[in-house]
Each structure stands twice: as structure tokens, then as C-alpha cells.
Design a binder for these strands. Structure first.
Length: 347
DNA sequence: AAGTCGGGGCA
DNA sequence: TGCCCAGACTT
């Protein structure tokens, strides 16, 4: 794959910049510490990469601390109960990550250790092209590329890529792979991501602070923030449903959602479905005197959900469910936490 | 190749 | 409101 000759000095210049400007992150071994012979812990690198998939560092960091405090090793995590991991993950989103996290931990324990190559890592659940490259490079010093959203943006600008975004992303991946240095491949990956996160930012890139600004075609064109050029998204979709807060005494009825699909495997309140079109069929979990207490609105990636919150006090026989003292409720995904708060606050 | 899958922060 | 964030998996 051909690449502009003028990117040849990028790795050395980027690593020199990284030596002075690396972010200090809980799972990371700094350049100075690496110089002292310290190496990243593959378990912590893997865990941080899974947590940070499509997740900001401020949001993910407290979860990383909580997970490593409670499960300091992959062996400890592999032995934990599924419900405990799902509860610890509640609020982070993309819950398939939590299910795959546990599967992966158990696979790794069965293997005896984390595999060290990109290809072997990518066979594990929850580890795709980006994460495999990141772990191989950062934890095992392999010459692998880790192309995340930051790196896509940095290279879209460096090369001023104007074509179809899906096709340009392949150009970027090939360009980055060709540039990964033999020495310090992991720090090269970290440096590219730091550059994107702190200098080559989405809306207001700080080009004067960029160590490779002179190589940047978007900078030369004068409007670097115009890149990357992505296709417009479709019209926003809206759905609606009903969520039921069924109470008896000081206990509330919860349910466990099926593993597949939206909020899979998570603790939840009973609901109707929320069809793509029209209104849902009423599906209260028991016959009771239901009163509407309000609505909650929640934005998912590809639709906005409005749930009517109905509250009922049970008089007859309890339906099957996870009846839980109201004060002990934890581990609900955010949309249900909103409904729970609405129905139990001041009422 | 296109859809699905969360949640929070910010312009 | 729309976009972004250390993307992966399913169809």
C-alpha cells in the first residue's frame, strides 16, 4: 500500500512528543516507568480496552477502578457470578461487552494466559480488530496497529481523505499498519490516541501544539476540523412503551431480561415491548389498579424511547419475578433507573 | 455492507 | 438536537 513519503518521520516525532505529553492513566505504564523496566499488565490492558469501547475515559475510569478493586486478576474475574458482573457494569451501556468480558476471562483461564498475537487475541469474545491490535502492541510489544476513532480522525486529516468514509477507513488502517515502528509499538499506539484525544480533537484541533502539523494536508488546506467527512445519518426514530412499577409492601417486582437484544442480561422493570411502529399492547405483570405517574425519555443509539410509567400496588397473588426490597435495588440500566426514581421518589 | 447495541458530555 | 467517545457482533 502506497503512502505519502512525507509520513516517514511521523513515528519518531510522535514518540518524542509522547515522551513529554503522555496522558497519565490508571492502566497505563508511563514512558519513564517503562524505561525502568516496568511492563503493562495484560489483564488490566484488556479490561481497560473493553470498558473504553465507545466510552469516554471520564465515564469508564471509575468502572475500571471498581473492577480491578473487586477482581484484581483474570482468574478472580473468571470465578465471579454472571449477575455480579452485570450489576457492576450497570450504567456503562453496551451490555454485550459485560457478557463477553466474562466469557473471555473464562476462555483465558482455560488457555492458561492471554494469547500474545493479534490473530489469536481476535478469536476471543469481545475482542475485535481494534482491541486485538491494542492489546498485542501495548501489553505484548507486538508490531500491531490500534485504529480507534481518534486515529481515524488524525489520519483523515493528515491525508485529507475526501472519499467514501468506509473505504477511507481501510486506507487509514493500511497507512497506520505501515507506520508502526519495530521499537515501542505499544507506545506508538498510545501516542496516536493521545494526539487525537488532546490535540487533534473533533471540533477545535490545536494545530500549533501538534508535532506533525507540517505533514498535515488538512492543516495545509486551512480547515482541518472539516475532517473526517462522514455520511449523514438517517432520520431519528422514535418508539414508545409502558414500564410497570409493581409494589407490594416495601418490595418491588424486577425481571431479568433475556441475554440477546437490547439491555440483554440486565436487571429490569417489567415493560411492554416498544414496537418500531405504532403503540404497544398493554402487558401489565398483574391485575392491579394502575396509575400513570409520568414519562421517562431515553435516547438509545438508533432510537429515542418514551416510556409511560405506571405504578400499581399488588393486592392478590404475586406474579413470578425478582421481588426485591425497594431500598436494595441496584444494577438497573439507566432507562429503568430513571423510571424507578420517578415512581418511588416522594410517592 | 448495513443494523444493532448505551450512556454521558458538549457544541 | 447531533456528534463523539480506546468498537464488536449479527444478519
Amino acid at each position: 500500500m502506497a503512502r505519502p513519503k512525507d509520513l516517514d518521520t511521523l513515528p519518531d516525532r510522535l514518540l518524542a512528543w509522547y515522551d513529554r505529553h503522555a496522558r497519565d492513566l490508571p492502566w497505563r505504564v508511563s514512558p519513564a516507568s517503562r524505561a525502568d523496566g516496568n511492563r503493562p499488565d495484560p489483564y488490566r490492558i484488556w479490561l481497560s480496552e473493553i470498558i473504553l469501547q465507545q466510552t469516554t475515559i471520564p465515564h469508564g475510569t471509575p468502572y475500571f477502578q471498581a473492577f480491578t478493586d473487586r477482581w484484581p486478576t483474570v482468574e478472580a474475574l473468571a470465578q465471579s457470578r454472571d449477575e455480579d458482573v452485570m450489576t457492576a457494569w450497570a450504567g456503562l451501556g453496551y451490555y454485550a461487552r459485560a457478557r463477553n468480558l466474562l466469557k473471555c476471562a473464562r476462555d483465558v483461564v482455560a488457555l492458561g494466559a492471554f494469547p500474545e498475537t493479534e490473530a489469536e487475541l481476535q478469536k476471543l469474545p469481545g475482542i475485535g480488530p481494534y482491541t486485538a491490535g491494542a492489546i498485542a502492541a501495548i501489553a505484548f510489544g507486538q508490531r500491531a496497529a490500534a485504529v480507534d476513532g481518534n486515529v481515524d480522525r488524525v489520519f483523515a486529516r493528515l491525508l485529507a481523505l475526501k472519499g467514501d468514509w468506509a473505504a477511507e477507513k481501510k486506507v487509514i488502517a493500511a497507512s497506520v499498519r505501515a507506520l508502526v515502528p519495530e521499537e515501542r509499538p505499544g507506545e506508538f499506539a498510545e501516542a496516536l490516541m493521545d494526539l487525537g484525544a488532546t490535540v487533534c480533537t473533533p471540533t477545535r484541533p490545536n494545530c500549533p501544539a501538534c508535532p506533525v502539523a507540517d505533514m498535515c494536508r488538512a492543516r495545509a488546506e486551512g480547515v482541518p476540523e472539516r475532517y473526517p467527512i462522514k455520511p449523514a445519518k438517517g432520520v431519528a426514530r422514535v418508539r414508545q412503551g409502558v414500564v410497570y412499577v409493581l409494589v407490594e409492601g416495601d418490595e418491588i417486582m424486577l425481571v431479568r431480561r433475556p441475554d440477546k437484544g437490547l439491555l440483554g442480561g440486565m436487571l429490569a422493570l417489567p415493560t411492554t415491548d416498544w414496537p418500531k411502529m405504532g403503540v404497544p399492547d398493554a402487558a401489565p405483570p398483574a391485575s392491579a389498579r394502575w396509575k400513570t405517574v409520568g414519562e421517562v425519555r431515553h435516547v438509545f443509539t438508533h432510537f429515542t424511547l418514551t416510556l409511560t410509567v405506571q405504578r400499581g400496588t399488588l393486592k392478590g397473588k404475586r406474579p413470578d419475578g425478582l421481588w426485591t426490597p425497594i431500598r436494595d435495588v441496584e444494577g438497573l440500566p439507566t432507562v429503568f433507573a430513571k423510571a424507578f426514581r420517578l415512581a418511588t421518589s416522594g410517592a
